[in-house]
């Protein structure tokens, strides 16, 4: 540090006050920048095992070792002007989706645990969740047989199923509606990539954007009944019998 600084009490106090002001100002500036960097574009998906975004930004060292470990060259590092925090890894499903390697090399390569090493089965990864975002353009929902998202899904039959229902337009055909099951969808993005439309009708969204949440005070009667092992208010289930006067 500077030699020969003013070592009087007043000088020290002044320097300390100045220093505190600069520290505060820097800190406030960084605070703003960090807040801005938290905005993650909805089509930017984190690699498998990524912690929730806020925790991820505390953990990710921005070293790119996951990028190097990815055998398919899928992961990229965000640039300053990009739509994710500078230097953090992401992939865009519509460009190249995750291949879901069984040994999860990207997560294993992470030195800090921003990609959770506890993830052992790639089927448990939750990079996002697929959502049919455009029922109006999905070919299957028009009554055609596209089925591509269902067929490319690595967990086909679990993460995406085809539910058949009546086609009211023709009156005689079926509609095979693709339905995503969030409890199985890894968010790999194969469906979004494969969607044959010009703009995909099925998209992988970040969990924070896609997931709903039931309020904590809300109780589902049947769940509570299961938990308690009996009806919570006995006898409430029955309805009064209404039939015409005198009928048996």
């Amino acid at each position: 540090m500077a030699a020969g600084a003013n070592m009087t009490r007043r000088g020290l106090l002044r320097d300390a006050a100045r220093g505190a002001a600069v520290t505060g100002l820097c800190s406030a500036g960084f605070f703003g920048l960090v807040q801005q960097s938290r905005a993650l574009a909805p089509n930017f998906l984190r690699p498998p095992g990524a912690l929730a975004e806020a925790d991820f930004l505390a953990a990710c060292l921005r070293c790119g070792l996951c990028v190097r470990a990815c055998p398919y060259d899928i992961l990229k590092l965000a640039d300053f002007v990009g739509a994710a925090a500078n230097g953090t890894p992401y992939f865009v499903a519509r460009k190249i989706p995750c291949e879901m390697c069984e040994d999860i090399p990207c997560a294993k390569a992470c030195p800090s645990g921003a990609l959770d090493h506890a993830l052992e089965n790639i089927d448990d990864a939750r990079m996002g969740v697929a959502v049919i975002t455009s029922r109006e353009t999905c070919l299957n929902l028009q009554g055609l047989r596209c089925d591509v998202c269902h067929r490319v899904c690595p967990l086909s039959g679990k993460a995406i199923t085809l539910e058949d229902r009546h086609n009211a337009r023709t009156g005689k055909h079926a509609i095979f509606e693709p339905v995503v099951h969030a409890d199985a969808c890894t968010g790999c993005g194969k469906c979004e990539k494969a969607c044959v439309l010009e703009e995909a009708a099925i998209k992988v969204l970040p969990l924070a954007l896609a997931n709903g949440k039931i309020a904590a005070h809300y109780r589902l009667g049947w769940e509570e009944k299961k938990k308690a092992g009996h009806e919570l208010v006995p006898g409430i289930g029955g309805l009064p019998v209404r039939r015409p006067e005198g009928a048996p």
């Binding site: 800190s27 960084f30 605070f31 920048l33 960090v34 807040q35 960097s37 938290r38 806020a54 930004l57 505390a58 953990a59 990710c60 060292l61 921005r62 300053f80 925090a85 500078n86 230097g87």
Partner: peptide
């Protein structure tokens, strides 16, 4: 510490 994020790596 305040943001709970690696602050300087942003820039």
């Amino acid at each position: 510490a305040v943001t709970g994020s690696i602050a300087y790596e942003v820039i």
